[in-house]
Design a binder for these strands. Structure first.
Lengths: 228, 228
DNA sequence: ACCTGAACACCGTTCAAGT
DNA sequence: ACCTGAACACCGTTCAAGT
């Protein structure tokens, strides 16, 4: 005598209360923070919400849109500050630092933000603030527009770098130092002679340096009154 | 009367001549160029080599290593030039341009190169050349080391940008322009007032600008003799 | 040693069946 | 309208069976 076959209906239990895009994005962000980007699968998110993968498609057109929505939500949490011409440079450093922090706190999101178009409310708000700070510093519009692009590159690149060396920051630097030091000096004289400089500086320091270099370059340009 | 069951042995045909890592990477690069990164699956590569997916694991430890090997191979094709102090700046622009071209010619590889560690022969050769050019320009070692990082960010970021707008370059810019122009001016006064500047310049122009800005910033720093 | 192809444990997405 | 879960067409990787 066998147990009567189940599987006759498409459901085993009554339907739950409707979900929402909010709930889906929240669940996905929680998984991202605790387990990383790879763990953010439709099935995993659905399980976290105690439902089937198909249910998510009511709120999100697919995985890519979900990732974009996550990025938008994280970008929206970045604090913006009214530009003050007296301390615009410090404000700019602080803003870019917060952008970097937000991405680092959500490992993997930087790679997403790199692929997405910059057309969203939160991204626009950050861009508006960035332009405001550069204008407060007397940077010409065209220079400011292109500088914003460079800063985006620096933030994203540094966030992705942080994602990779997640495990152990100093161990990672030492590994690279060992690799460089072991290269044949005849073929790589400059690398082997400058291992110290190549791995010097913690990520924060290097990021600040990069931002300063770009700002100095932009300001020099404006001062000269160069034709673009 | 039925056809006698096949599937009794693990093979239907005699074994082929051995493959090689070369052959695997070549096949993968061909697929990358014609169909993009997503199409580079172990199964797809195996099919192109007329074998099963399991065969690839003799030459490559997995998909990630295959992608790294592809990046290494492409990086190795970048032409390097002996630094000449008389025209180091033009040489630097040319080198970075070739790096960008190589990545753009292999859509998707830029995202791979971003995640990988910079420890490979080809990457080291490019870094060695980059350092040589900066030294030829009189840049101090620590500045040169950190500048190399910034240039890597610019090249990778611009290559990924190029990947995204692959389809139609001007159409993409127009789409972004439309989005910016449609934003509410009260909330985004600077964006809406500067749409032209924000989307101005073809990608090449923007890239050259970024490289010049970084160089100017670095050179200003060296001149001042700043303690960084 | 290395090719072969089935098998395992996953994916994203679609869709008929329910409520 | 939206939840449910099976089904489809894929993945990367492993491995016993062959040569």
């Amino acid at each position: 005598m066998t147990v009567p076959a189940r599987r006759r209906s498409t459901r085993d239990r009554p339907a739950k209360a409707p979900l929402s895009e909010q709930a889906v994005v929240d669940a996905a962000l929680a998984i991202l923070k605790s387990e990383g980007l790879e763990a953010v699968t439709m099935r995993r998110v659905a399980t976290a919400l105690d439902t089937g993968p198909g249910s998510l498609y009511v709120y999100v057109s697919g995985r890519d849109e979900l990732l974009q929505a996550m990025q938008e939500r994280v970008t929206a949490t970045i604090e913006l500050e009214k530009p003050n011409p007296k301390r615009w440079r410090a404000q700019l450093h602080a803003l870019l630092g917060r952008m970097l922090d937000a991405l680092i706190a959500h490992p993997g999101l930087a790679s997403v933000s790199m692929a997405d178009p910059p057309t969203s409310a939160a991204t626009s708000a950050a861009l508006e603030n960035l332009l405001g700070l550069l204008f407060a510093g007397g940077v010409a519009p065209q220079d400011a527009a292109w500088a914003a692009d460079i800063f985006a590159a620096l933030v994203t690149f540094n966030a992705i770098e942080a994602d990779t060396r997640r495990v152990d920051i100093t161990e990672h630097a030492e590994e690279i130092a060992r690799y460089f030091a072991a290269l044949p000096p005849e073929r790589y004289p400059l690398i082997t002679a400058n291992v110290g400089a190549l791995v010097a500086g913690d990520p924060r320091r290097r990021f600040r340096f990069a931002v300063d270099v770009v700002l100095d370059g932009i300001l020099a340009r404006s001062k000269d009154g160069r034709p673009d």
